[in-house]
Simulated scan of single mutants.
Amino acid sequence: MKKLILTAVMAAVVAPAAFAAANCPAHPKDQWIKQDVFKKQLTDQGYKINKFKVSGECYEIYGKNKDNKKVEIYFDTVSGKPVKSEVQN
């Protein structure tokens, strides 16, 4: 019983760290790529965006890539480069 409780506690502590948001550098808002422009760039690259949001200092999308795989990607708001991504196989 103690082992089961310890396992549950460890899972509760480790799980949030595994799914922590990306750490994007802070940039002045006037330097950010405009959201509509950035969304267009992503769709031109083959992404299908289901949800687009600002997450801290990052742009974050949920959707599918050009290979039709589900993705969650955080992007730098100035360079547009991916900072963190998760792709489901």
Rank of each mutant, 00 (worst) to 15 (best):
K3T: 14
D67L: 15
A22I: 01
E57T: 06
K53N: 01
M10T: 15
D36Q: 13
D67E: 15
G46Q: 11
F75N: 01
K64T: 04
A11D: 08
K81D: 09
M1V: 08
P28E: 05
I5K: 09
Y59L: 01
V54H: 14
F52P: 05
K81Q: 15
A8R: 04
I5P: 03
P28R: 07
K70H: 12
T77L: 01
T7D: 08
Q31K: 14
K64I: 00
A17F: 13
K64Y: 06
L42F: 07
K29Q: 15
A12C: 15
V78S: 04
N65E: 10
Q45W: 11
N68S: 15
K81A: 13
V87R: 12
P82K: 10
K2V: 13
K70A: 10
A22N: 02
N23D: 14
T77F: 01
K3E: 12
M10R: 07
A17Q: 11
A21T: 12
I61K: 01
N23Y: 04
V13D: 05
L6S: 13
K53P: 00
G80S: 06
S55R: 09
K40N: 14
Q88F: 12
A17E: 07
K53Q: 00
N65G: 09
L6R: 10
Y74D: 02
K81E: 12
A11G: 08
V14R: 10
K48F: 06
Y47T: 07
A8L: 15
V87H: 08
L4S: 09
F38Y: 12
A26N: 10
E72M: 04
A11I: 13
Y62W: 10
